[in-house]
Amino acid sequence: MTGRAVNNTIQTDDSPDLDWYIDRIVQVLMFIGGISAIVLIIGIFIFVTREGISFIFNDLDFAEFFASPRWRPTSEWRATYGILALIVGTASITGLAMMIAIPFSLGSAIFISEFATGKYKEYLKVLVELLAAIPSVVWGFIGLTIMNPLIIQIFNVPVGLNVLNAGLILGLMAAPIITSIAEDALKAVPDGFREAAEAMGATKWQVIYKVVLPAAKNGLLGAVLLGVGRGFGETMAVLMASGHAINLPENIFDSVRALTATIAAELGETAVGSVHYQSLFTIGIFLFLITFMINLTADLVVRGVKKG
């Protein structure tokens, strides 16, 4: 055996060979894959906008839409389309959920990343990811059948399906996602930082507080914002746990209704193309814009890490 390649002549022409074609094909496939995500998102936006656009131009009274708490699209006498109560409902549930989820998830992310070691750490990470994979309808089920009687019992209130219930459920749902992303952000902090600080005599907590958290700050903020986005967009669990009553809540024991839940509950019962149908799509556009802005902010914030 000579051990040399058979074809080791110097190539003098630039004619494409098999590798060249494969490379081209792969490039085209990757391009299609990449562009399809963009095409799909634009397609969805166009669809949602098209369904809602005639409502926006013909029937929409901006003042009423955003400032009136009266959502009565099926009123025979005078239909009103005010989503203020729905916005407040979504915002109060999400706000409470974040108050619960943020401390818990940042705490567990710090624990998993900085304190847990070896197998223990791996088990915890898998468990957190499992928690994130629980379907939202299951969470709604828990809210309906477990939390509801518990809240009635503990706080002595007539209804257990309210801001507190939905906020707790949503907080528990968002926590694993925030934890997971926050843990990634902490993991991205180079070990050299930790070692350098420890070598200076910093205690574990000083290392975390003075070095790791500032270094991971953007990633952590991004994680929180993604959790907020998740809260705004969540439908099923909120529909089941919030009480679904159009109401400007005075405290956390009032039932509320969320924007998303309204779409989910009403869209199936409207005539396609009717004003009610179009108004629901307008809510959809509004939700789309909000989550888009939250995710965009989250993305910009996370990117800030690399610039800094």
Partner: peptide
């Protein structure tokens, strides 16, 4: 340390 570790401060 051998490689400079400028803390993110």
């Amino acid at each position: 340390f051998p490689l400079p570790v400028g803390l993110p401060l």
